[in-house]
Design a protein around this nucleic acid. Sequence first.
DNA 1: AATGAAAGTGAGTAATCACTCACTATTAAA
DNA 2: TTTAATAGTGAGTGATTACTCACTTTCATT
Lengths: 214, 214
Amino acid sequence: MTEQNHLLEEVLQEDKSLTDKQRQILIAATEMFAEKGFAATSTNEIAKKAGVAEGTIFRHYKTKKELLLSIVTPMMVKMLGPIIIKDMNKVLDKEYEHFEDFLRAMIKNRKEFLEKNLKVVQIFLQEIPFHQELREQFIEHVGKKVLNRFVQIIEHYQQKGQIVNIPATTIIRLTASTIMGHFATKYVIGAKWNDDEEINQMITFLMKGLAPEE
Amino acid sequence: MTEQNHLLEEVLQEDKSLTDKQRQILIAATEMFAEKGFAATSTNEIAKKAGVAEGTIFRHYKTKKELLLSIVTPMMVKMLGPIIIKDMNKVLDKEYEHFEDFLRAMIKNRKEFLEKNLKVVQIFLQEIPFHQELREQFIEHVGKKVLNRFVQIIEHYQQKGQIVNIPATTIIRLTASTIMGHFATKYVIGAKWNDDEEINQMITFLMKGLAPEE
DNA sequence: AATGAAAGTGAGTAATCACTCACTATTAAA
DNA sequence: TTTAATAGTGAGTGATTACTCACTTTCATT
């Protein structure tokens, strides 16, 4: 728990208005939703696991779905912070002269986020096919803003002549697929490998694949 | 239906022992499972949509889960056919002299499979986190056999000096991530693009990224 | 110590769940 | 045409579902 749900813990501790029982409910729900899925988890089970009466859940959350959203929404909001506000501005003009350095920093950044929020990310990925609210929230909070920023960054490195001149969205897709494939292999399939080495090979592959035409 | 569920239709038509009502049940269940998920779909709903009494479902499938498996299992078995039996032997020695041609053929082949079985693939991806049987079936039927074959193919092209000399599994991961990312963008996010052009850019990217060191 | 608001409770609710079973309808072989 | 097997039915099962509500406990403020 401690190492896998930083974001949840942050929400739990930051919000001093939460009671202990409320925290327990959120912890229990997160674990059950991740394990069995939203639809297959009953409020009864959550209450038992949290050591709480079933009524207590509904005192704080009008519906079971509201409980789900209260777990997943903060994740999407907080995803913006590290990407947009901090990293991006650093990246765009100053810190990373080479696209490769940007790539490395980005991969490290996302890796840390993932490792600190495994279960909530898992719930998000599992439930997004079934809940339109989740899809809409994601597009609104993350999708457009982040995509636009990325386009800017890619075009920046294209102008510097460091990467090939194809549409920025294509480059983003190719890069994101490769990185997400790396994480999927690691966390879904559970591959055991030398992480640094695999990341290096991934970056080499990306840099070669996206190198400018000669 | 006709264009999206070839595999299902094949199973339905090939198996002459199936009655019309059984076919209706499988069609209705496939659509509901894809739309709402397994856990959130009731047998009552399936029966109504199929125009059948609820008891009829349980005459043929002992449990609701057995119904799910009867839809998803044939998909995994059939996935092997085109990859292993036909393409692979062709590919290994004769038909595709260049890795690029193999890639092209593979992408085309998987694209056709996907387009013909969209809903069943969707159900499979949605439910695999929650059902151990599905995971075990997948590893048994698809995982090991296909992976081994792919390793052979990659090493074949490595020996010919056409692709870089890093572990075959890494190459497979990088390639598969790129291709799956392409399909995910198309079918999940619903991107509208020039398909042939995007595939060409993807192949160029892969060939450059996997080119041998000089 | 008194007070009011918020937190917590758990028995209770109607609805829905997957599944059963005694029965009827259909079919194909004898 | 009889017969036996299979397909199909739908009312009925107890269990479980998300959620409610009248009530009690906790706690900060006066």
